[in-house]
């Protein structure tokens, strides 16, 4: 594939993800309402909220510094960069020259760190509590992500996202037990990173993971929400690119782009559907009990590594 074509695809998929992210989040809200046998908000409600918030005046605490003001912009930029690198429309990384799988995984740490810094910076107690919980979740989930990433990179022999995606999509890689266990651990980590139950209640946003957001308002709140929606869909795209890239375009063509876009949307809808079923089937967990659940994921990831070593 030509470089210009790849960059074009990258820009296209980043734009699509940016525009589509609020719909997907709205979709999970609708599903939750249906499961609760409520009527729920319309699918496009998130857009209305975002536009409304953009137009409102922003109120900032006097204690807040530049980190608080920069965080929404910078986290959206980081997520857009991830959206440019993840192979979504093609089985190749559009901006693979910028960074690889490890880089993308750590790119997801940027919004997290920024939000927790902003929570501290806001000077509000609530923001501070949210900030430290945010970082705790990070320390629990990041080892899982990184371990699975290493297992996958060892299996393929490369950390290039495009190479991994291509190998898996074309069946050039033997899908061993290590791969499946890694997939399970990565799916769990994705679930947690998406800010879902049992650690977070997305509609009571001030509660846990999104605590730092309680101080935001106006356009900053809109940007923060939008970048969280974007983070969710980019995470799903990353999961699909690594473990379920079937249907992605191998050779560059217009029909191929349209086809893989449709396939991607179907896969993403299916993923969100499963996530919605899971999150609504669970009770909320006490925050301090979170390690008990994440140890399981870490155990699975370690098992996957052991199976790789044993060539199972």
């Amino acid at each position: 594939m030509s470089v210009a074509g790849l960059i074009g695809i990258g820009v296209l998929q980043a734009l699509i993800l940016l525009l589509v992210a609020p719909v997907f989040s709205g979709f999970s809200r609708v599903l939750r309402a249906k499961i609760h046998t409520r009527k729920g908000p319309p699918l496009m409600q998130n857009y209305r909220d975002l536009v409304k918030l953009m137009k409102r005046q922003e109120v900032v605490s006097e204690q807040a510094g530049w980190v608080f003001r920069l965080a929404p912009f910078a986290s959206m930029a980081a997520m857009l960069l991830a959206a440019l690198i993840v192979p979504m429309l093609a089985a190749a990384s559009p901006l693979g020259v910028v960074g690889d799988l490890i880089f993308v995984v750590y790119l997801f740490a940027i919004p997290r760190v920024l939000f927790s810094l902003a929570g501290l910076d806001s000077g509000s107690t609530f923001g501070g509590i949210g900030a430290r919980r945010e970082l705790l979740i990070a320390t629990l989930i990041e080892p899982v992500l990184v371990l699975v990433v290493f297992v996958l990179a060892l299996l393929v022999g490369s950390t290039n996202l495009g190479t991994i995606s291509h190998r898996v999509a074309t069946g050039m890689m033997q899908l061993s037990l290590a791969f499946w266990l890694g997939m399970a651990a990565f799916a769990f980590a994705t679930f947690v990173e998406m800010g879902k139950l049992p650690f977070d209640l997305a509609e009571a946003e001030q509660e846990l993971q999104e605590g730092p957001l309680s101080e935001y308002s106006g356009r900053s709140l809109a940007l923060v929400k939008w970048s969280l929606y974007l983070k969710q869909i980019v995470l799903v795209a990353l999961f699909l690119a690594l473990f379920f890239p079937y249907g992605s375009m191998i050779n560059l063509s217009v029909v191929g782009v349209v086809f893989s876009l449709v396939v991607f949307l179907i896969k993403a809808v299916a993923f969100y559907f499963v996530v919605a079923l899971l999150e609504n089937a669970m009770a909320r967990m006490r925050f301090m009990k979170a390690p008990a659940a994440t140890w399981l994921a870490l155990g699975t990831a370690v098992l996957s590594f052991v199976f790789y070593l044993a060539h199972v």
């Binding site: 975002l50 953009m54 137009k55 005046q57 922003e58 109120v59 900032v60 106006g218 809109a222």
Partner: peptide, 11 residues
């Protein structure tokens, strides 16, 4: 979306 016009208030 016209967010720049809305401005910011320090409180």
């Amino acid at each position: 979306y016209g967010g720049l016009r809305a401005g910011r208030r320090n409180d």
